[in-house]
Design a protein around this nucleic acid. Sequence first.
DNA 1: TTGTGACTTCGAGTCCGTC
DNA 2: AGACGGACTCGAAGTCACA
Lengths: 80, 80
Amino acid sequence: MVKEIDIRKATGDTVRELRTSKNISQEKLAELSSLDRSFVSEIENGIKTASVTTLFKLCVALETKPSQLMKLIENHFDGY
Amino acid sequence: MVKEIDIRKATGDTVRELRTSKNISQEKLAELSSLDRSFVSEIENGIKTASVTTLFKLCVALETKPSQLMKLIENHFDGY
DNA sequence: TTGTGACTTCGAGTCCGTC
DNA sequence: AGACGGACTCGAAGTCACA
C-alpha cells in the first residue's frame, strides 16, 4: 500500500537534508530552482506533493540527478 | 533549462516501455496501480505530468523502484 | 530565515463514454 | 487494446502578507 503522506514526508526530509548540506536557504533554493519560497517550505514539511517536473527543478538547484534524489527518498520511506 | 514537455514525454515513453515489456494492457496497469485508465493513457502520451505519488503507484505495478524508474526517465530525457 | 494562512488558477486525477 | 473527449473534483502550483 502506497501512503501519500509518507511519500510527502520522505521527499521533504530528503530535500531539506540536501539543502542544508549545501548551506543554502529555502529562499536561495527557490530562486535556483525557479520555484516559490513558500512552495519549497511546504514541500520540505510534507504538506504538498511534488510533481516530476518539480523534482527535476529541485535537482538542478541541488546539483543531483533525479534518480539519485529518488534513491534518497526511498531510504527515508518505510516500505523500501 | 528544464522543459516541462520533454519530462512528460520521457516519463511517458519509459512507462510504456516498462508496461509493454511486461505484456500488460493500460487497463491492467491502471488497475494494479490504483489509477484511472484514461489517466494512464495520458501519462504515456506525455499529456499530463505525474506526481511523485503517482510514480510510486506505477512502480508497484511495474515491479520496479522509483529510483530505477527515474534513471530510465533520465535516459529518455535530453539533458541528462 | 522560516512557517503558515488566505487566496487564486490551473492541472492532476476520476468517471463517464465513443471510435 | 488504446486514443480521445467531456465534465467534473480536488489538490498542486504560485503569490503575498505576517508572525
